[in-house]
Design a protein around this nucleic acid. Structure first.
Lengths: 413, 413
DNA sequence: CTAATACGGTAAACTGTTTTAGCAATATTG
DNA sequence: CAATATTGCTAAAACAGTTTACCGTATTAG
């Protein structure tokens, strides 16, 4: 049974009703700590406006999913209150909080007891002000509208948020719109002491904001890409390996006329895939035609348009390597629309292995990129970097091919 | 030439060596500010451990970064430096920064000039410590793995991040795993002064953590849902209206045997849709069968399974109302797999209108939810709420139906 | 012509931590 | 047994801002 407390002022606070006029009410599923309040208790049941004026008769416990006792302003207590109550100095409390071994076991226990009892938790702004670290990292995203609704970023971000949480860090998310950069907000992130470091997702050689971090020696890691011009820290998936895996697969199935739908050649990892494609084609057929490489803009629509173009200029291709899954889906639709079967007539391989590609048929053979793990790794390294434990971060994560139905033996014709 | 200052204790600080024993060393590219330190100066060149004991003889300048003073810690300047340079008091500078109208135009201009010239930017932790607000909001997500990779959350989050940026607020993103709640991290968000308020995405009646915010009167808004038991602030899409729109459409097309694939009945907005469905069916055919309502778990797979079940128990249904697009896609695949045509045999309507539903055919008729706008609105209201400008936030955003190919006239049979 | 008010600015108190230098008391060493 | 080290803790100085109470002028009102 539930009640609602309206203190003479302030918002109502919800309570479990433990007892009313001596009659116990549902003692189970209730937090152990109980409290008595001289208060007004209007009931929630129907419209009984009945109010218990002198509420000494009711015993209540706050509804607190996690429940510890509480009233609204816990009369903000600070480190001095704790020190006073524990009979030690402020410095001692600080050292207990920060696990400084100079404090004896006995003192530590005593102080921790008081901290518990008073429900003290140190103010982060104050800690940051006098300490060295903010324990906050930023994730920077390019200025694409709805960038976050992209599963590619979502997967990376999931890894970032999860690992950061585990390591006691908070993540703030920012979009680098033109105005944002003009206002130097990305520099302010450091200069106004918002963060210890930044993770840059979705950037490529064209995004010069990264040089700003380098120049000022602020910790920044490029995630799933690298910067060609500057020696910026990075972690990314092994796109070269992925491309090799995809090409191996197609070549072993007998394909020779393999076309490629790429995107964003201003990105180093995109060029990695193109490079490998070129190398393998060179070795395979002794030459490459630029007509077999079309830009698909990383979108499904772009992939479809690219495929249309490809089919009109080189109708005899038997396989398609796509720079990401979205373009591969677009490509498959274009193929099917033109009466070609996948994989009987044309095989298709993608990149990313995005989750929940719902009911795409045939299932798309694709290079799995460990994006979640990459996000987690990036956080791990960035924190080490902010603590000056490591300096140069150049790390690459292995990929693997996921075989589904969109690839098959080359057609006999 | 570089030197490193090791003060008798503490971390080394890197300096340019301007002069040593009277001999000038590289006077150019050096910041104007110089200082004399009675210190030990081990040289950086090779391993010369040579130490200048009485360092009165050396003149040093901090190494500061690009453009202006170069170096590791860019000689952090604070409000007092600005005040000194501008010949005013610290309070005046503070008031200029905060656009306090008490400062005259002339003084304001002078101070702003100095701020510009010195490249000063106020420390956020310090502002937070003495001020009232953190200018940071948190987005809380449920503990779903890869939650962020979901376009539903992505769309909401995009709106949140965009609007927050515009309003000068930062967004931190957190996942409420069980351990997170056990550690009271969601309460710490406020008590340790991390944030001014929280936005709760993806929560429903089962998530009792929301009561904690209510109990302590911390600003919290439930986004795209509401809490049945407590009077928590919320903004959500008008699911009732959406359901009406979907039902109107189907009924106008002549459908009478309409089934529903719902999900998460512990969510108030999900129940809204179910309610409307029930009402309309009651009015339409004078009764409803529980067999016509199946839980699809909000996933494509779930939608497919639910449809299988539906078809086996009630093969004569002619239309399907689905609680979200993913389930609708699953449903369509199940229908097609069983040899039924969409929309000729069965019409399908979804909810969400997720972007880039690439090449689903037939195109899915669906209720468009303004998720991006909802995220933006939530931020707007939350900020107003933290500044005590408004108290009760109960806002609902209109939906509209997007007609595509998955709906058609009821079949004649 | 005096009192009241507005204007523009300042000194000082305050926010809540961490860190450093120092100080007793005890433990170890020569 | 004196000299030195170690241990356990404290006082006080940062850290970088905001806010409040107050203080001369200058203007306006009575």
């Amino acid at each position: 049974m539930r009640g609602r407390i309206s203190r003479t002022s302030g918002y109502p606070i919800h309570f479990w009703l433990l007892e009313c006029f001596g009659a116990p009410v549902m003692p189970e599923d209730i937090d152990a700590r109980r409290s008595e309040y001289p208060i007004i208790v209007p009931m929630d049941d129907g419209q009984s406006d009945g109010v218990v004026e002198d509420a000494k008769c009711v015993t209540l416990a706050r509804i607190d999913a996690v429940g510890y006792p509480l009233g609204k302003p816990p009369a903000k207590i600070n480190i001095r209150d704790v020190a006073g109550q524990a009979g030690v100095s402020v410095a001692t409390v600080s050292m207990v909080i920060n696990q400084n071994p100079r404090i004896s076991r006995a003192t530590r226990a005593k102080v921790n007891g008081v901290i518990q009892q008073l429900g003290y938790s140190p103010s982060r702004p104050a800690q940051t002000l006098s300490g060295k670290y903010t324990q906050v990292l930023a994730v920077l995203l390019p200025a694409l509208r709805h960038a976050l609704a992209d599963t590619y970023f979502g997967e990376l971000l999931s890894g970032v948020v999860d690992r950061a949480g585990k390591l006691g860090h908070k993540i703030i998310v920012e979009q680098t719109k033109p105005q944002y950069l003009k206002d130097h907000k990305h520099i302010e992130l450091f200069e106004r002491k918002f963060v210890d470091g930044v993770l840059c997702l979705g950037f490529n050689d064209k995004h010069h904001l990264l040089a700003d971090f380098l120049a000022r020696q602020y910790p920044a890691i490029m995630v799933d890409n690298r910067y060609s011009e500057y020696k910026l820290d990075f972690v990314h998936c092994d796109y070269r390996q992925g491309a090799q895996q995809a090409m191996n697969c197609l070549i072993q199935l007998g394909h020779r006329k393999i076309a490629m739908i790429y995107a964003a050649p201003e990105s180093a990892t995109s060029r990695d895939v193109l490079d490998i494609y070129r190398q393998r084609m060179m070795a395979l057929v002794g030459g490459i035609s630029e007509k077999w490489m079309v830009d698909g803009m990383f979108t499904a629509e772009g992939g479809a348009i690219a495929t249309d173009k490809l089919l009109s200029e080189a109708p005899d291709i038997t396989a398609l390597l796509c720079g990401n899954d979205k373009m591969a889906i677009g490509a498959m639709h274009s193929l099917i629309r033109q009466g070609l079967r996948v994989p009987q007539d044309v095989s298709v391989v993608g990149f990313d292995d995005i989750q929940h590609l719902p009911f795409i048929s045939p299932g798309l053979t694709t290079v799995h990129l460990p994006l979640y793990e990459l996000g987690a790794l990036a956080v791990e390294r960035l924190i080490e970097r902010t603590h000056d434990k490591i300096s140069h971060i150049h790390e690459v994560l292995p990929t693997h091919l996921v075989l589904r139905e969109s690839t098959g033996m080359v057609r006999q014709s």
